[in-house]
């Protein structure tokens, strides 16, 4: 479930896509709450179109050699609210 208040807006989307892109598996994400089609988890555009606002339940799938750890890492990222919501020290 999407935990952070603003949902998957620009910054969380990029955090998700960056992590998904490290994986060698094919990553798909579906928004169960909105009954949408599964999209490519490595696509910055499609992840935004998922319209994953706070409280939406996502189904993350992966197919490939590192599928298990990819799904775990991405699920953890979503449930932790991306951590990016907290202000980061600016440089």
């Amino acid at each position: 479930m999407v935990a952070n208040k603003q949902g998957l807006h620009a910054r969380p989307v990029m955090a998700f896509v960056d992590r998904a892109s490290q994986s060698r598996s094919r990553v798909t994400v579906a928004n169960i709450t909105r009954k949408g089609e599964a999209v490519d988890g490595k696509s910055a555009m499609q992840m935004m179109i998922l319209e994953a606002t706070q409280g939406c339940v996502l189904r993350i799938g992966a197919k490939g050699v590192d599928a298990r750890e990819t799904v775990d890492a991405l699920a953890a990222l979503v449930e932790a609210g991306f951590k990016t919501d907290s202000p980061q020290p600016s440089d």
């Binding site: 910054r11 990029m14 896509v17 696509s43 555009m45 499609q46 935004m48």
Partner: peptide
């Protein structure tokens, strides 16, 4: 203007590098 302002464009780069798109 600092990092927060710059971060707005991270997603632009992400979209431009989006393999699907």
């Amino acid at each position: 203007l600092g990092r927060d302002a710059a971060r707005v464009f991270d997603w632009h780069v992400g979209v431009l590098k989006d393999p699907q798109l």
